[in-house]
Design a protein around this nucleic acid. Structure first.
Length: 883
RNA sequence: GGUCUGUUGGCUCAGUUGGUAGAGCACAUCGUUCACAUCGAUGGGGUCACUGGUUCGAGUCCAGUACAGACCACCA
């Protein structure tokens, strides 16, 4: 074993080599697109992780899937770019910094905007690189020279450009609308940043008397405190109960304000009392109704969620919760609280901090969605962008079709500041690419820029083209846009994917990617979502430390199915680690057996096992390639796992040992050649999935010291290496081997004992079985093999098994329990009998003969004939054994 | 209220043009010889939730039912 000292440890030790390998890749510049005019481009832009964050399992899955696709396409020779970057994550980062400051006793207002922003940039500098370092640990082969940040100069320019263009087209406007307001973050939120949760609450019935002291009517509400902002009451126009009140007024308790009663279809007579208080400044539906009936909005709440003066002196300054208690108490005292009823409904919370969101009227910037949504829907419908799995396009349509205008202004500091200025003299709004010096209307220099920043998703929406240089017509943009595949989770289809699609179409005229590959959420081993509150998160880096990056990658990949959630478990990772070790050791075996420097002359395969493994390899190449082309990464991984472990290791390596250890030189050379050929191909196939392991092994292959597996060619299946006949032959031989092993085990034959094997070949199998003698010796613990002639009798006591390739008999003398053997063989025959009846049933069915494909019918016939032969053989054996 | 997904061996899950069910883990028995005990061999274990339908043939297609889950919309 001359190569025993060539550096391969007995077990694979990823910890030692991953860093070195990654550094070599990165410094070699091989992550960059290789160029080549004739090569098709393949590009993925990475969903940018937030700079607030640590890498979590979701990122790990996302990055692994992308890396598999990228490495695969790179090996195929495509001009491949994986463009990485990070997201400034406006509100999330700002909250973190505020929290950090709070610990130091500082506040935003205290230090001011500029100081705050410099802290934010310092944060970015410190933590922004953390996650990209972690991605490197995962083996992500992105082009770090092209790394971008949503707030870098280029991306910021794209944001301003888009804002100005949309404003000039009338697709961005500023207006007073009901928006979702987070009293804790003190900013507006978009509709999808609100998460609804069911809560057990109450429905309060409150009497609004008539001005003359009459009964008036009773309304039902879940939010009594907002009644202080009521400016009307609505009933259904067809509701007889209230017809007499429409056009009249009722008195708002506590304040004494008179409220007009209006009739509107919005009101459901069957709910509550059929009368609804109208609070236009604090409820989106009321706001709409109020518009129709000219009811003025009245804000009774401050931005921090406390009541303001409009609520009345006695309530001003109270929190909404306190105010509710006081209002109810007052109503009760006045005898106007008619009843209280339990009521379950859902309440919106801020997706960032969980605080209950207040819908309130506020002046904000909006994107007009309808004109943008239309072509974006068409693009998916026309197949310009394809969702995998397909069903997510329906979710996308539903959302896009019902979409409302997008509130994009945020009362935050960390983000892209809105490029709008207000003239303090004449009030003119100026939206422009460059900071203006004077007002174009009145010439005043007293201009004030809008204080607000944009929703963080506004810049994310531009990511596929802003990162490639847009609005400049850069070579990268021309080469790689539209990008090829977007890999992301279903949880951000609305936040991100949909917005990228309409933005891409609007600003570049093209949908930003051909394919959206959707994956699910990585859950814990009990199927729960990983979350901070449950503290069940698993840190991918810890897994990398313990098991290696490849094991983590492979465990995430094995069994991923597009769009489906998956569980993460240590057991799965261990299985993947074991697989890595298996590959390592298989390689070690092959390499130890290759002559020094490899074989100059590579004899072709000539034994059945050699042809068999090459043919099986070909199948694996075709299947893995097809799965990858179909974005079925889980199936590709599974195929590799099975081929490498169950075929190459379990069978071929074992079969090759005979020739390697004591074969003639030319036999030895052929075995080595086959081993090397298969190893080389499987390493390349496996590389996208387990890049470190395969790269480490690849360097040990003869002549490969300077070569890189990452840059090697993707294997191609050559028809010359298809050996269907040898595949069938080997399958027959393998079945006999399995049968002999089973017999031995059942008969409790001593493991060390080599048994004689008598074979009665099935028709046409004599030569194959004869040639397979070395295989039987090695894998079935056979001492000598004898082929029995037709009708040849055996005098000895034997146990036997019948397989499609023939009958295997093992003389075991007194070990044989005749009665048991007869029982066993009879049971086998009965099982076959059932099979035979099924085959006959099928072949007797005229419909099957007429309509099933001919090859299938033929296969069924052959199977039936074989089963009949086998059953006959079994029955003969039983007869022989009977005294 | 609407839409979607899942229900396959003890557990976790694959199963892509419909052709007699697979893996990993777990379990049982055996195995320390020269790739690997992070291993090998052998074995047990499934009416593919239920009911109908289409078909020569259904885990796979259609309809319905039950249970579980997700998303969207929310009538105060």
């Amino acid at each position: 074993m001359g190569r025993g000292e060539f550096g391969m440890e007995k077990t694979y030790q990823p910890q030692g080599m991953e860093k070195d390998i990654y550094e070599r890749w990165e410094t070699s510049g091989a992550f960059a697109p290789a160029g080549g005019a004739g090569k098709p481009p393949y590009c993925i832009v990475m969903p940018p992780p937030n700079i607030t964050g640590q890498l979590h399992m979701g990122h790990a899955l996302d990055a692994t899937m992308q890396d598999v696709l990228i490495r695969y396409h790179r090996m195929r020779g495509d001009d491949t770019l994986w463009l990485p970057g990070t997201d400034h994550a406006s509100i999330a980062t700002e909250n973190k910094i505020v929290e950090q400051m709070r610990k130091e006793g500082l506040t935003k207002a205290g230090i001011g905007r500029e100081a705050f922003l410099s802290r934010a940039w310092a944060w970015k500098k410190e933590y922004g690189g953390q996650i990209t370092r972690q991605l490197r640990r995962m083996g992500a082969s992105c082009d770090w020279d092209r790394e971008r940040f949503t707030m870098d100069e280029g991306c910021s320019r794209a944001v301003v450009e888009v804002f100005v263009r949309l404003y000039e087209k009338g697709l961005i406007y500023r207006g007073e609308r009901i928006i979702n307001w987070c009293p804790a973050c003190k900013t507006a939120l978009s509709d999808i940043e609100v998460e609804y949760e069911d809560r057990n609450d109450h429905l309060w019935f409150i009497r609004y008397p008539a001005p003359d002291g009459g009964d008036g009517l009773v309304i039902a509400t879940t939010r009594p405190e907002t009644m202080l902002g009521d400016t009307g009451v609505a009933v259904n126009p067809n509701d007889e109960r209230y017809r007499h009140l429409v056009g009249k007024s009722v008195v708002l308790p506590i304040s004494g304000r008179e409220l007009p009663v209006v009739a509107d279809d919005y009101v459901d007579p069957a709910f509550g009392t059929g009368a609804v208080k109208m609070t236009p400044a604090h409820d989106p539906n009321d706001f709409e109704v109020a518009l129709r009936h000219n009811l003025p909005p009245l804000r009774v709440m401050n931005d921090d969620g406390t009541m303001n003066e409009n609520a009345g002196a006695e309530f001003a300054g109270l929190s909404a919760k306190e105010c509710r208690v006081r209002v109810l108490k007052a109503l009760e005292e006045q005898g106007l609280l008619v009843k209280t009823q339990d009521y379950a409904h859902s309440v919106g919370g801020c997706s960032r901090c969980g605080t209950t969101v207040e819908p309130l009227m506020s002046r904000q910037w909006f994107v007009k969605m309808e004109p943008l949504a239309k072509p974006a829907i068409a693009a998916v419908r026309d197949g310009d962008t394809r969702f995998i799995p397909e069903r997510f396009s329906k979710i996308y349509y539903n959302w896009m079709e019902g979409i409302r205008d997008w509130c994009i202004s945020r009362q935050l500091w960390w983000g892209h500041r809105i490029p709008a200025w207000y003239c303090e003299e004449c009030g003119r709004v100026i939206v422009t690419r460059e900071s203006p010096d004077t007002c174009p209307d009145c010439g005043s220099a007293r201009l004030r820029q809008d204080e607000d920043v944009l929703d963080t998703w506004f810049s994310s929406a531009l990511w596929p083209f802003s990162t490639l240089g847009w609005p400049e017509q850069t070579p990268d943009l021309a080469r790689f846009y539209p990008t090829s595949t977007l890999v992301t989770g279903y949880d951000i289809i609305f936040f991100w994917v949909a917005r990228m699609i309409f933005s891409g179409i609007e600003h570049t005229g093209r949908t930003p990617f051909d394919t959206v590959l959707i994956h699910g959420i990585v859950r814990d081993d009990q199927g729960r979502k990983m979350s901070k509150s449950l503290n069940n998160g698993i840190d991918p880096l810890e897994i990398v430390e313990a098991y290696g990056a490849d094991a983590l990658r492979f465990s995430l990949l094995l069994g991923v199915s597009p769009g489906a959630d998956m569980r993460f478990s240590k057991e799965k990772t261990e299985a993947a680690r074991n697989f890595a070790n298996k590959v390592w050791n298989a390689a070690r075996f092959v390499l130890m057996n290759l002559g020094e420097g490899g074989d100059a002359a590579r004899p072709g395969p000539n034994t059945a096992p050699e042809k068999w493994i090459l043919s099986r390899m070909n199948r694996a190449v075709r299947e893995v390639t097809a799965h990858l082309d179909a974005n079925e990464l889980g199936l590709a991984a599974q195929k590799l796992y099975d081929f490498i472990w169950s075929e190459f290791c379990d069978w071929f390596i074992e079969l090759s040992k005979g020739d390697l250890l004591d074969g003639a030189p030319e036999r030895k050379a052929a075995a080595r050649a086959a081993l090397q050929k298969v190893l080389s191909a499987l390493l390349r196939l496996l590389h996208p999935f387990m890049p470190f392991l395969t790269e480490a092994i690849y360097a040990f292959l003869p002549g490969n010291a300077q070569a890189s597996c990452m840059l090697s060619d993707w294997p191609v299946a050559l028809e010359a290496d298809d050996y269907p006949q040898e595949e069938r032959q080997m399958e027959g031989v393998m079945e006999i081997i399995r049968a002999v092993r089973a017999l031995r085990q059942e008969m409790k034959v001593q493991p060390g004992h080599k048994a004689r094997l008598l074979l009665r070949p099935a028709e046409g199998w004599a030569d194959t079985l004869s040639a397979a003698e070395p295989s039987f010796r090695r894998l079935a613990s056979v001492s000598t093999m004898t082929l029995l002639a037709e009708g040849g009798q055996i005098e000895e006591k034997t146990v036997s098994a019948v397989t499609p390739a023939g009958e295997a008999l093992i003389p075991l003398g007194d070990l044989v329990d005749l009665a048991r053997e007869i029982a066993r063989l009879s049971a086998e025959a009965d099982a076959l009998e059932a099979e035979i009846r099924r085959g006959e049933g099928k072949l007797d069915n005229p419909g099957f003969l007429a309509k099933a494909p001919a090859p299938l019918v033929e296969a069924e016939r052959e199977k039936l004939a074989r089963n009949r032969d086998m059953r006959a053989a079994l029955l003969r054996r039983v007869d022989d054994l009977k005294p």
